[in-house]
Computed example of a mutant assay.
Amino acid sequence: MKFVFDLDGTICFKGQPVSDALLKALEELVAQGHEVVFASARPIRDLLPVLHERVHHYPMVGGNGSMVAAGGARISTVGFDGEVLPVLLQLLTTYNVSYLIDGEWDYAYRGPADHPIRLHLDPHKLARNVPLQELESIVKILMLTSDHMAELEERLRQLDVVVHAHGGEGVLDISPKGIHKWSGLQQLGVKEREYIAFGNDANDISMFRHALHAVMIGEHPQLAPYASEQLPLDEQIERAIAERLTALGRLYAVASV
């Protein structure tokens, strides 16, 4: 069985790396013959610092599906097409947007130095912060602040792009048309109803919808209808996840699949 994990708010918390206890639980799944996949809104570049290097070869979906890697090598990236991209870039100016824009590896950041997104951005200095015009391909846009965020969101939803609003952060997360975590998983050969998903936010809906079993961490009203079960987000969450992985690993043992 394949086990697919979102990162932030699901198996790592407050910008800290995945704990050794949870890493060991994931590695135990692999030892039993299961496959572990990470699927995050973070670009691949920013997955690596919160994952120990001993799991860097595991399959990864980054940028909400715009980036896919396996065995430590990039498989594919998908950028915005030439029609919608100029419109998106014009909106940055029209609405005085601060942003984090990801290319295939490097990024362009314009915004407050103390913004939470900036504080956790590329901590290992694996990439370069370059002027926007130097990014040859743009695969993901985070709009952090704006003079008129509600109006900006309305404009974005009229475009042929995927928009996720992170209510707790007040951030708009924009991906190319047809790009989401499920599309990224398909690039890895993951098939419908042949994996178990763990997630916590609206950008996990696509992978929850196609999962055999979906575990929601904490509470999210948009995600909840697609969840098979929920684990409360409290001080015991890591222990609860590890115990659930043990149980699910035994239930979906390779020999029975």
Rank of each mutant, 00 (worst) to 15 (best):
D106K: 14
R74C: 03
F198Q: 02
A70Q: 15
S146L: 06
A127C: 14
Q186N: 05
L119K: 06
V50P: 11
M216F: 08
S175D: 04
A214D: 05
I217K: 02
E229V: 01
L251K: 13
L172S: 00
L100Q: 11
I141W: 02
H210F: 12
R157H: 09
E169W: 15
A247K: 05
D122I: 07
M149P: 12
L231W: 01
S175I: 10
P43C: 12
V36C: 04
Y252C: 02
E151W: 05
A113T: 14
S228G: 12
N96F: 05
K140L: 10
R42N: 13
L132D: 11
E83I: 10
E219Y: 08
D173Q: 10
L51T: 04
V50I: 15
L23Y: 04
G103F: 14
V215K: 06
D234V: 15
P116C: 06
Q16F: 05
L51Q: 03
V257I: 01
Q230G: 01
V78S: 11
L132Q: 13
I196L: 07
Q32H: 01
A255F: 10
V254N: 08
E238G: 01
Q133A: 05
I241W: 00
H164E: 11
G65I: 00
A253L: 11
Y107R: 02
N203R: 01
G178S: 08
I141L: 14
L85Q: 03
A214L: 13
D114T: 06
L89P: 00
N203G: 00
T145G: 07
G82Q: 12
P123K: 14
H115L: 02
V190T: 12
R118S: 04
A150S: 15
A202G: 12
I174L: 03
L121V: 05
D81F: 11
H213K: 13
D102P: 00
N203V: 04
L22K: 04
V190Q: 06
